[in-house]
């Protein structure tokens, strides 16, 4: 993939995540902040489908943004064709792994 496309995804995911995380934080403020973090309230959030959906999107956006950022840092640390390929694929696999694990948590809490 062209580097400019990767970076557009990187910047786009950051912008979108900032918007959604702002909504997420504002939702904390609809109740008292400490109260909103209580166990029962957190579980209730997961059961509320639109909210769970938003958490899932935040998870995807932050994972994409974070792992592209990590790839950039690692590419600067060391150079070489094989090293770069290993880093790019490893970051992609780790990103999919994190999204899968996070999604599993959201689904399990939502259903159970």
């Amino acid at each position: 993939m062209r580097e400019s496309i990767i970076m557009k995804i990187h910047y786009g995911s950051a912008l979108a995540a900032v918007g959604l995380v702002a909504v997420h934080i504002l939702m904390r403020l609809t109740q008292g902040y400490a109260e909103s973090l209580e166990y029962a309230n957190v579980i209730r959030n997961y059961h509320f489908l639109p909210y769970a959906g938003m958490l899932e999107i935040i998870l995807i956006l932050l994972s994409i943004h974070g792992f592209i950022g990590l790839r950039v840092i690692l590419l600067e640390l060391k150079q070489g064709r094989i090293y770069e390929k290993v880093i790019s694929y490893s970051c992609f696999i780790a990103m999919i792994g994190l999204i899968t694990y996070g999604t599993r948590t959201i689904i399990m809490v939502n259903m159970g």
Binding site: R2, E3, S4, I6, M7, V72, L75, E76, Q79, E84
Partner: peptide, 9 residues
Amino acid sequence: IDESHGIWR
């Protein structure tokens, strides 16, 4: 310049 060690670094 649009490569992994190009402008975006």
